[in-house]
Nucleic acid binder design. Structure first.
Length: 273
DNA sequence: GACCAGGCGTCTT
DNA sequence: AAGACGCATGGT
């Protein structure tokens, strides 16, 4: 079995996968990580500054698969230059120092939207559990215990009883609403990508269960946009709540907040639109 | 048992 | 426009 090797370009794989921007990865006994995106199940292992990828079914990661993961991990971004720019700001310099290896992924639209709908008023272990049950219950089986994220149609048509099994609580109806909108073509990642950030944000906010935080997470973690809005209150609040306004040397499971703060700054200052 | 968890919709001023 | 409150569920 051949292994695809990609340049990590300074990324810390583990910190990136478990900082709270994705809920679709789990550690393997081998030291690598197994994850699913779209209908691809892969395992990745970091060896120095390279990522070693293998398909979970044993096949080669090649051709389009390789391009997919290269894009997923956003390996085209020059983070060294980006972070140098961030460090002009004192607070952001501390953010970079606290978690220098975190990279923002480019995740498929639908699963990002649903994951962050599920994330509201919730904690990371339970979010991961619900996302896992979503895949097992409604997604196509890819290989052994690996399941794809469900297609919008599968969730749009799911009877209430079936969704209850997810133990997502009151978020059931949000899941269904989002799935129906995407399934009907009313909302699509492709359409959002074609819009200015401000319009895309407005379109996301129309989904039942999507507020400013979820919308910004989808914009950032899936659409690669720094939101047009000013720095959100929730980011400042989270920073204050967890770190007392300071980023500690080791920020534990909340390193993602530091990174999100970086991007909050970025969207204030970079104005890509 | 109380309280929290990376919010949001709804109802009230 | 801004504030209070309920919301299902599971962990501590």
């Amino acid at each position: 079995m051949k292994t695809l090797k990609l340049p990590a370009r300074g990324m810390n794989l583990e910190a990136t996968l478990f900082c709270g921007q994705t809920f679709s990865w789990r550690p393997l006994a081998s030291g690598g990580f197994a994850g699913v995106a779209g209908r691809r199940a892969v395992q990745v292992r970091q060896e120095g500054d390279t990522l070693a990828l293998q398909n979970r079914d044993g096949g080669d990661v090649s051709g389009e698969d390789g391009q997919f993961w290269h894009n997923y991990f956003a390996l085209d971004i020059d983070y060294a230059a980006l972070q140098e720019d961030f460090c002009r700001d004192d607070m952001l310099a501390r953010c970079v120092k606290a978690s220098p290896g975190i990279r923002v992924l480019r995740q498929p639209f639908f699963e990002t939207l649903l994951s962050f709908i599920v994330s509201q008023n919730n904690n990371i272990p339970r979010i991961s559990g619900i996302v896992g049950r979503l895949c097992q219950g409604f997604g196509e089986r890819l290989y052994e215990s690996e399941y794809a994220f469900p297609l919008p149609a599968a969730l749009a048509a799911a009877p209430p009883k079936a969704l209850e099994a997810l133990h997502a609580g009151y978020r059931d109806r949000y899941i269904r609403d989002a799935a129906q909108r995407v399934d009907s073509g009313l909302l699509s990642g492709q359409a959002l990508r074609a819009m200015p950030t401000k319009d895309a944000r407005k379109a996301l906010l129309e989904v039942n269960g999507v507020g400013p935080k979820v919308a910004d997470c989808v914009l950032l973690f899936s659409l690669g946009r720094w939101a047009a809005a000013p720095v959100d209150v929730w980011m400042k609040r989270a920073l204050t709540r967890y770190f007392g306004g300071e980023i500690p040397e080791c920020a534990g499971g909340y390193q993602g907040i530091a990174q999100q703060y970086i991007f909050a700054w970025a969207r204030e200052n970079m104005r890509p639109d």
